[in-house]
Nucleic acid binder design. Sequence first.
DNA 1: ATTTAAATTGTTATAATATAACACTATGTA
DNA 2: TACATAGTGTTATATTATAACAATTTAAAT
Lengths: 135, 135
Amino acid sequence: MKTMHKEHTLTKNQQIIFDLIDKSPEPMKAYSILFNVQKKGIKAPLQVYRALDKLVEIGKIHKIESRNAFIACHNSSCRVAKATAFSICEICEKVTEISSAGLSKYLANFKDKDGMKYIKYNLEFFGLCKKCKVK
Amino acid sequence: MKTMHKEHTLTKNQQIIFDLIDKSPEPMKAYSILFNVQKKGIKAPLQVYRALDKLVEIGKIHKIESRNAFIACHNSSCRVAKATAFSICEICEKVTEISSAGLSKYLANFKDKDGMKYIKYNLEFFGLCKKCKVK
DNA sequence: ATTTAAATTGTTATAATATAACACTATGTA
DNA sequence: TACATAGTGTTATATTATAACAATTTAAAT
């Protein structure tokens, strides 16, 4: 019998919602997701939020807290949503997941004055993306 | 005539709401603020949200995005809410503003691959505070 | 002092985001 | 099989936030 870590098998609702978010070029909001999956039989907000909660928990998607929106994880090393960093353009709202070894190392090792050690963080950078900067 | 930067004079509503948040030992949510200031004549959500927006804009308070809650700024160098970092206990929900010169320097200088330079960031660390860790 | 622009206020209504509660079903494992 | 755990479907409701508009206050500039 194998002792490998089991890859998380998504349930039907989770898969439908993950696929939608994963295909989206921008973060999606819960009720926009709901609207888009109603034809597939997902009719109620709770069905969406439950799937989102699980997908966040297992690290397949991340929540952009300042925007109440969800984005698929494109950081392959990111098994659990414990260390996330994003850049957000304040004009076009483009959101990109940052994967910088230096940054994650720095933050993972950061200790505050009380010596409190953190198990998780979320960082959101705001600025102007290249396109919006030149306009 | 003086050329000093003008201290932002708060309006009545802004002052009432700032005082409340400033006295609170924990972050306050908008509708809890509303409930607490109704006896002072602030009756509607919009009055609260408008004051909150302004207070955030001028850096007197910060929004804890993951909690939809507001906390007074205790970082005296923080004139504008452009660079914020918090620690959040996942059990007792205690929130503390982190003021670490090293951290803010590191983040202020962080550039991503595209060379995008950020004008603002918000960082939320999650973990267990001292009290909750020993329980 | 008077005018003007900008910011703030008060108000009603409504939009957008998220969870409670409960009965039922599927799945994995002992 | 039986038991526990996780997921589903559903209705109702709670929580967070903004739209729109008229009135008022404030700051500053004539």
